[in-house]
Design a protein around this nucleic acid. Sequence first.
DNA 1: ATGGTCGCGAGGCGA
Length: 268
Amino acid sequence: MKIATWNVNSLRARADRVEGWLRRSDCDVLAIQETKCTDDNFPWELFERMGYEVAHFGMNQWNGVAIASRVGLEGVERAFMGQPGFGKAGTDPVQECRAIAATCGGVQVWSLYVPNGRALNDEHMPYKLGWLDSLKEHAQGIVTHNPDTQIALMGDWNIAPRDEDVWDIDLFLSQGYTHVSEPERAAFRAIEAAGFTDVVRPYTPGPGVYTYWDYTQLRFPKKQGMRIDFVLASPALAARVTGASIDREERKGKGASDHAPVLVDLAE
DNA sequence: ATGGTCGCGAGGCGA
């Protein structure tokens, strides 16, 4: 079985790309982020045509997450327990479409689009950190209750956990950029400490290995990227992993998403 | 070529 995660940066703009990728990737389960659409204009027929069931959580042109599967799609959950919404100080929080889960082929798959903190002193930063803490609590609760549960927390985490995960750490730190700050990294480490492992890194060692390249400044041809898309596996799932890869080819050419698909191979 | 992006949705925001 093969599972993957991909921030497509608009599913409608990327429909042909996604269909072509599904055709040649031999992927059984795909977690999608940034569909940027509603259920009304979601390309349902694309997945039907390709033989995938699909569940979507999207309400407007922002965010939006989906899971496509050809090995079953059961128990769909939209948002996780305790998932905070965003609201500026003094206003009511609004739930955003950033998490969807389903059980596919015996694996509880989560498609996650972690909030972008925007800036270290922006109101979105505590939102991001609280969001990650709630996710940790929820995921930890599942594996504590049943250690045999196979869980894949996968998506765009908007965090570069280690210095080598950005193309110029000195620039990021000196400019006070997000994604590399200690609180963000601590939130990521807390999820690892809860029992979830980055199962891709052992098969895609760095430095210089990334999953995202900004559209501006010719970042991709200059190999100036960031590693911010991850598959974090519970112990029972991690034990099944036999390989992983980052499909850097998919970032090439006209009409590419700014993120590459990340794939994980599972035994049997 | 000494600059250089997309997508959404119709001006500016978000990444």
